[in-house]
């Protein structure tokens, strides 16, 4: 590290810290203060409520489906985009990143347009007796859409930076496709992949807008944890809402902590590649 020419004025540091305090730190503190105000015991009791438990279970289920689907899809897409040159490569990447610039509400709306009461596939679904919207499948689909790009965005830049020489080396040494993938490709991206999976999971569990559109808000059935927070809050059961919000905030904090550690690992992996010893 070279010495920095201009030290940052104390005033600027204070201003930046004040901004972070008012925008980020205080809201978080206020949230946890609300939880602690009511007492830990009472906050924990809120999770005994069957509806809250159903919400937690539903959230876990949605995440348990979305995370593997989008992880496997993301790996396949990253392999194509980072390792091959093909017509429409840029367009494919644009499509994959599209959900990032779409409002969560619209991410839910599109599924209603397909599977809702007046949707394209409504007649088919009715004949089959399957309900998608206002049911778990709709929640999963909306979550899949919203969390779609997370893994690809983590993997592609890293894989491009790493290059494909190691994989080619594995081939010349006699490895087949799967062995190359398991022994070379996957270990090389494991930290970035884990980081992507963590973010994907956090978003899957915390998504609000998209799932609120497809949920129909049936208590005990189609409310995920964020939706349950809203329901409780609007019902003037603020303490229970804060308890659940506190739980999700903890998940976010843990995710950020783990991510910071993984980022450090990834940076090490890239540095080791780029700078010769």
């Amino acid at each position: 590290m070279t010495a920095r020419p201009h030290p940052v004025p104390v005033l600027a540091v204070l201003a930046a810290l004040a901004a972070l305090t008012f925008l980020v730190l205080l809201p978080l503190a206020a949230l946890f203060a609300e939880v602690l105000d009511q007492g830990i015991g009472r906050a924990l009791a809120a999770f005994n409520d069957p509806e809250s438990r159903a919400a937690i279970r539903l959230t876990a289920l949605v995440a348990a489906i979305s995370v593997p689907v989008n992880t496997i899809g993301g790996l396949a897409a990253a392999w194509c985009i980072a390792r091959f040159h093909f017509a429409g490569r840029g367009m494919l990447l644009t499509f994959i990143e599209l959900p990032l610039s779409v409002s969560p509400v619209i991410s839910g709306l599109v599924w209603v347009l397909l599977f809702g009461a007046q949707g394209w596939f409504a007649p088919v679904l009715e004949r089959l007796g399957v309900q998608v919207i206002f049911a778990t499948p709709g929640l999963v689909l909306a979550t899949l859409f919203v969390t779609f790009p997370f893994v690809v965005r983590q993997l592609v830049p890293l894989m491009v930076a790493q290059g494909r020489e190691e994989e080619e080396a594995a081939l010349t040494l006699g490895a087949g496709g799967w062995r190359m993938f398991w022994h070379v490709t996957l270990p090389n991206v494991r930290w970035a992949l884990l980081q992507g999976v963590l973010l994907l999971n956090a978003r899957a569990m915390g998504e609000f807008g998209a799932v609120s559109v497809v949920s129909g808000r049936i208590r005990g059935q189609t409310l995920t944890m964020p939706l349950q927070i809203e329901a409780l809050y609007n019902d003037f059961q603020a303490p229970a809402a804060f308890a659940m919000a506190g739980l999700l905030a903890l998940l976010a904090l843990v995710t950020l902590g783990a991510r910071a550690m993984l980022e450090w690992q990834t940076r090490r992996a890239v540095d080791a590649q780029v700078t010769p010893a």
Partner: peptide
């Protein structure tokens, strides 16, 4: 550029709006 105690923590705080579920952010704010 700044060198002050808690810089790493401040850096981590910046990501919180990414990771905090919007509903949680909503009721906290």
């Amino acid at each position: 550029r700044g060198r002050f105690p808690g810089r790493q923590l401040a850096d981590a705080l910046v990501d919180l709006p990414f990771a905090l579920p919007t509903a949680v952010a909503g009721i906290a704010l």
